[in-house]
């Protein structure tokens, strides 16, 4: 068991290491560099040389990669190319804001989607199921920037219930983000809830059709007891992985939502840094997101292993 978790951890670390290499190579392959992007028409002669000297862009790529990885392991993410600010502090607030947004979406979305998933499954093919399932499919298919724009149009411009664009600055206290955070949360929740709902629904339907549930029914176990004791514990196991994946997606995939709503999170910082060619910042964010993604998936795997004895032994046999 411990060996298995350690093995997973090792694999996760290798993934993160690979990601650092890929990020670095990808950025190296882009034309121009941080100085050319920052200086625009002034990127000539001495001014360009000074800038490159300052950021250490004159050194060979391999050397720069080594220095960057070395510093990152020590927790030093370097300084940003534009403005020369410390990246750790720059990213700190944004990371908190993205977490806040993700948390709001999880608090609103996970219980809602679990509940709706079970309800639709138990009412399979009845009108409630049809309506909710159709809405879920719609929410899944429509890209989130469309959902976001429609939400702004309806609730901010038309009905004037909530502000459409977030104007609070990155470093503001958490309370300052309400009520501006409502619409971005709603947009995220819609997409996220649809995914979880679909998985939970099919999982519950599958368990309902299983032999042991039929057995329990024939034995005369009351309906609600079957649902709570036999169906849900078994049906919700696969949901854990979906929820974990969705949380990881929330942290990395909110880029579009943050851009549309001007939300000061990691995603928007990443986009701005890419257009500024602020390479140290791009690298740092990509590294953070990759680490979070790996960590959340690892956590979900461990949780599933703990809750499902069958999977544990199967895996053990497989590794031998």
């Amino acid at each position: 068991m411990v060996r298995l978790i350690l093995r997973r951890l090792g694999l996760g670390l290798i993934t993160v290491a690979l990601v650092t290499g890929i990020i670095f190579v990808a950025i190296e392959m882009l034309p121009g560099d941080a100085c050319v992007a920052y200086l625009e028409r002034d990127a000539v002669g001495q001014r360009l040389e000074n800038c490159r000297e300052q950021l250490g862009l004159n050194r060979p790529a391999i050397q720069r990669y080594g220095l960057w990885v070395g510093a990152a392991i020590r927790g030093d993410l370097g300084v940003s190319a534009s403005g020369g600010k410390d990246i750790a502090t720059l990213v700190g607030d944004r990371f908190r804001n993205t977490l806040l947004l993700a948390l709001c979406a999880i608090v609103a979305g996970v219980p809602l989607s679990l509940f709706l998933g079970v309800v639709t499954a138990l009412n399979r093919d009845k009108s409630a199921d049809l309506v909710v399932s159709s809405i879920a499919i719609l929410a899944m298919t429509i890209p989130e920037f469309v959902t976001a724009t429609v939400l702004i149009f309806v609730f901010s411009i038309w009905l004037e219930w909530v502000p459409g664009i977030v104007m609070t600055s990155a470093g503001a206290p958490v309370a300052a983000f309400f009520p501006e955070i409502v619409l971005p949360t709603a947009a995220l929740t819609l997409v996220m809830a649809a995914h979880i709902l679909r998985t939970v629904r099919s999982s519950v339907i599958e368990v309902m059709a299983s032999d042991y549930v039929q057995m329990a029914t024939l034995k005369g176990v009351p309906y609600w007891q079957i649902i709570f004791r036999h169906v849900l514990p078994n049906a919700l196991l696969p949901a854990i992985n979906v929820v974990a994946l969705t949380i990881a997606w929330l942290l990395g995939g909110v880029v579009v939502i943050e851009k549309v709503f001007n939300y000061p999170g990691l995603g928007r910082l990443m986009i701005d840094a890419i257009s500024d060619r602020d390479i140290p910042v791009v690298q740092a964010i990509a590294l953070i997101l990759a680490t979070v993604y790996v960590a959340v998936n690892l956590g979900a795997d461990v949780l599933t292993l703990l809750l499902n004895p069958r999977l544990r032994t199967l895996q053990m046999r497989g590794t031998r």
């Binding site: 724009t149 702004i152 901010s156 411009i157 459409g164 664009i165 104007m167 549309v260 709503f261 001007n262």
Partner: peptide, 18 residues
């Protein structure tokens, strides 16, 4: 004077009375 990098977001903010 509010920092909004995205042009589309600025337009939405104007339309929404922000």
């Amino acid at each position: 004077i509010i920092g909004i990098p995205d042009a589309q977001a600025r337009l939405q903010a104007l339309l929404g009375g922000q």
